[in-house]
Design a protein around this nucleic acid. Sequence first.
DNA 1: GGGCCGATCAAG
DNA 2: TTGATCGGCCCA
Length: 198
Amino acid sequence: MRSVLAGPVETAARALLGCQLTAGGVTVRLTEVEAYAGTGEDPASHAHRGRTQRNAIMFGPAGFAYVYFTYGMHWCMNVVTGTSGVASAVLLRAGEVVSGLDAARVRRPAVRRDVDLARGPARLCAALGIDRSAYGLDLLSAASPVRLSWGPSSPPDEAVEVGPRVGVTGAHDLEWRFWISGDPTVSAYRRHVPRTRI
DNA sequence: GGGCCGATCAAG
DNA sequence: TTGATCGGCCCA
């Protein structure tokens, strides 16, 4: 697992589809992810402008959690990829809750359909109770409260679709979003819309 | 120190 | 379609 994540970020992203993420008594099977490259390579990456306190974990070895706070209210989680010094990561955009449905429903009481419990990067974190405290955890350690493991089956290549990333300002030509074809838990595509000034 | 904006979500 | 809501980052 660690060695796959340490490879090229696109390879790591594809490999994460079908994997299981467990936290807070809930397990999801990952159905949608996005790849982000490191410093200077990818204008949409949080590491694009170099190392800061927030993105520091991205510069470390693969398999650790990069969790960030956005829009004043939401948490999102990445799996750090690449070798030490390479600040690439994979954003976990959606998953199917495969166990701990009750716990997930308690955390997301407004949800009507189970497929919406972890359908979106902030929703996924909410369903699993992931917040700032998960920053920097080793997801491959048995002792970690947030754990990543191979799923019972990974989707064959022909079942994986590819497209532009959601909500990113630039690099619309880069097709670094990967999802399991036809899966109902995959989030809706939205292009970034610049905020209109008053 | 200040201002702008974001890898989003839910309700209208 | 829009408001919520605040941390990160650059100085526009």
